[in-house]
Design a protein around this nucleic acid. Structure first.
Lengths: 103, 103
DNA sequence: AGGATATGCAAGTAACGACTTGCCTGTCAG
DNA sequence: CTGACAGGCAAGTCGTTACTTGCATATCCT
């Protein structure tokens, strides 16, 4: 009964979109970017030319899934990657079989 | 440059739907079920009353993502869970940082 | 053979998701 | 203060997706 109960379900939806996965890639490479930085780097490095609003909405989805944490500083808003929700979503279907002893 | 290159992208889309995740839960608990078995158990145990076609289409998506393997036997078609695609989709964003040492 | 069982195919609907456009709020530099 | 910069809000469009309904195919049992 956590407060964040429904959040694990949001992680899957957040990861469903290719653009959002690119954003996570970008944050892995360079953490703490602003919205404009992400827009620019997605456009130049990955050839994605989306509007600022589109990226902003994607970031909102990632933040709702707790995959991205934000900290405000003046007129800037920095986005930090949080990989914690990724560690438990897969073990849900992995059997508790011992990894050793397979003759 | 595998033949199955585009399939990793399908895994995320396959996991995006709650019903499909329920189906995976069901197959973890009991592998090798038929379509009707899955329909029945989803209806009774989880309260999901979807049409047979809906479940069939969900299984097709899971099979396209290689999360479910099927084997035909007479008029029955058994569905087996395949967790292999789940093991590499998360490591993409996990930094190689040591998990210890957080004062 | 004939009926019941298990599944497949096709088209149609309804809702959701991604993206855009336009305007508004807050922040810093001159 | 004024203008440039960073970000947020709201509504609208368009394609995708989940689900249903109806019909068709294949296999088993008697």
């Amino acid at each position: 009964m956590h407060i964040l109960s429904g959040m694990a379900e949001d992680v899957f939806k957040a990861l469903a979109d290719p653009t959002r996965r690119r954003i996570l890639d970008e944050l892995v490479e360079r953490d703490g970017q602003t919205l404009f930085e992400i827009c620019t780097r997605l456009a130049t490095k990955h050839g994605l030319s989306l509007s600022r609003q589109a990226i902003s909405q994607h970031l909102a989805v990632l933040e709702a899934a707790d995959l991205v944490r934000t900290r405000r500083q003046g007129r800037y808003k920095f986005h930090d990657l949080n990989t914690a929700p990724l560690e438990h979503i897969v073990t849900r279907w992995l059997r508790p079989d011992p990894p050793e002893g397979r003759p």
